[in-house]
């Protein structure tokens, strides 16, 4: 259940902010992509737009939010800093490593507190930190080598599929949060038609990974998001990266595009079908 007000303020407005600011980058010679100011725009506006959407949907989470799933907003804002550290390679990766450890730790604090022993908690946080860093590494590699149009399409597909699967899996609140990112990425996808330059979406990658990993982990631990769907959705990033290596030089651009989309989209489609089947089964016991 989403109200018209929520659609307007939490999805249309953030997407419009990203659309206008990125178009500004695309059509203003002084703000051409690659320049420091364009990095600032791409790093600041999407994260700020996400925070705006989040605030409209869930209210402003206090510092140390009572609901740990709301940490995603604070970490989304932290991504602004990381996005701005593009020139300082080591500093940036140091920040990313800290984020990769602290983010799942804060997000899963109740599970760590009540369900896991210290060694188990250390093991899982290490695994999730590595998954976060792997996602950032793969997506940044793609951002450097793929045009922004292709990459933004893949990112929009992943965020959109996560939103749909979460809503089918019984968590509207998480699905709504994921939907903000999907709306922002859709705007970036539209802009990338005019601004397909490689590297354009690089500052957006930490935001994407933080929100998506936040949703997958929250869905799995706090909602009824099954393990297969979690693996399929997060695995789509790896498949999309592998899709880059398929040699299709002789094929037309649209065929390369379709092959890549199908490869990244296959696990997403499967996750959607599984979630839909589960949803239909539950319909027999609907309420």
């Amino acid at each position: 259940m989403i109200t018209g007000q929520e659609i307007l303020w939490a999805y249309v407005l953030p997407a419009a902010l990203v659309l206008v600011s990125c178009l500004g980058v695309a059509f203003t010679p002084r703000l051409k992509t690659g320049r420091w100011i364009s990095n600032v725009v791409i790093a600041v506006i999407p994260a700020a737009a996400f925070a705006l959407g989040f605030w409209q949907l869930h209210g402003w989470p206090g510092w140390v939010p009572a609901d740990t799933t709301q940490w995603v907003m604070h970490f989304a804002l932290l991504c602004i800093v990381i996005g701005l550290l593009r020139e300082s390679h080591w500093m940036r990766w140091l920040c990313l490593m800290v984020l990769a450890v602290v983010f799942p730790w804060f997000l899963l604090k109740p599970i760590i507190q009540y369900d896991w022993t210290t060694p188990v908690a250390i093991a899982w946080i290490t695994v999730y930190a590595m998954v976060i860093l792997l996602h950032i590494g793969l997506l940044e590699h793609m951002a450097r080598h793929l045009n922004a149009f292709r990459l933004s399409m893949i990112l929009t597909m992943i965020a959109g599929a996560t939103t749909v699967v979460l809503s089918l899996s019984g968590s509207l609140s998480l699905a709504k949060t994921s939907g903000i990112l999907a709306a922002i990425l859709l705007a970036a996808f539209l802009v990338s038609y005019w601004l397909p330059n490689k590297g354009f979406l690089l500052p957006l990658i930490p935001l994407f990974v933080v929100v998506m990993c936040g949703m997958w982990l929250s869905g799995f631990y706090y909602a009824k998001f099954n393990v297969i769907n979690t693996i399929l959705l997060s695995g789509s990033v790896l498949l999309a990266w592998l899709g880059m290596w398929i040699k299709l030089e002789t094929r037309p651009a649209w065929q390369k595009f379709m092959v890549h989309a199908c490869l990244a989209g296959a696990p997403l489609a499967l996750a959607f079908v599984l979630a839909l089947m589960q949803f239909m089964q539950n319909e027999a016991n609907s309420y």
């Binding site: 009572a66 609901d67 740990t68 799933t69 109740p110 599970i111 009540y114 019984g170 968590s171 509207l172 609140s173 998480l174 929250s218 631990y221 706090y222 909602a223 009824k224 539950n282 016991n285 609907s286 309420y287």
Partner: peptide, 23 residues
């Protein structure tokens, strides 16, 4: 318990009680 397993799971989830966080 509200007499419907699906509803109970939903009520326990993040949309309402968030029972794994707020036990």
């Amino acid at each position: 318990n509200t007499g419907n397993t699906n509803r109970d799971n939903h009520v326990k989830g993040p949309d309402f009680l968030n029972a794994r966080q707020f036990r």
